[in-house]
């Protein structure tokens, strides 16, 4: 589960970097944007499930430190709440930063 979480995390970072570049360009092919958005959304759902399962497994094996991952389940929703289209690049950067942090923590659990 931990390995899967790491892979999904890396993919999410890459996807958001592509989004970040496009948000700076402001010009994007709608069909590509649709596929990217869909892929991003699917990854995000898997990411949440992986983190929650990692926390649950952590509890089963008495590794209560995994509880810190809960922070990364909540932050995308907090960022989403405050994000606005005008400041999309800034908020995408914040999201990427949180993903890098979660990746670092996941690697530490290995």
């Amino acid at each position: 589960m931990l390995y899967l979480s790491i892979v999904i995390n890396v993919l999410l970072i890459l996807c958001f970097i592509i989004c970040y570049i496009y948000s700076l360009k402001k010009v994007i092919n709608p069909k590509f944007k649709a596929k990217l958005g869909l892929f991003l959304c699917g990854l995000m759902i898997i990411y949440f499930f992986c983190l929650i399962l990692t926390i649950l497994f952590g509890f089963i094996f008495h590794n209560y430190l995994t509880l810190i991952l809960l922070l990364f389940v909540i932050t995308p929703f907090i960022i989403g709440y405050y994000a606005s289209y005008k400041k999309i690049a800034k908020y995408t950067f914040i999201q990427i930063s949180f993903l890098v942090m979660s990746l670092t923590i996941l690697v530490m659990f290995l």
């Binding site: 958005g37 959304c41 995308p76 960022i79 989403g80 994000a83 995408t92």
Partner: peptide, 10 residues
């Protein structure tokens, strides 16, 4: 809709 993905989804 509840994450930043809302701006990238079309």
């Amino acid at each position: 809709l509840n994450t930043i993905v809302k701006f990238y989804y079309t």
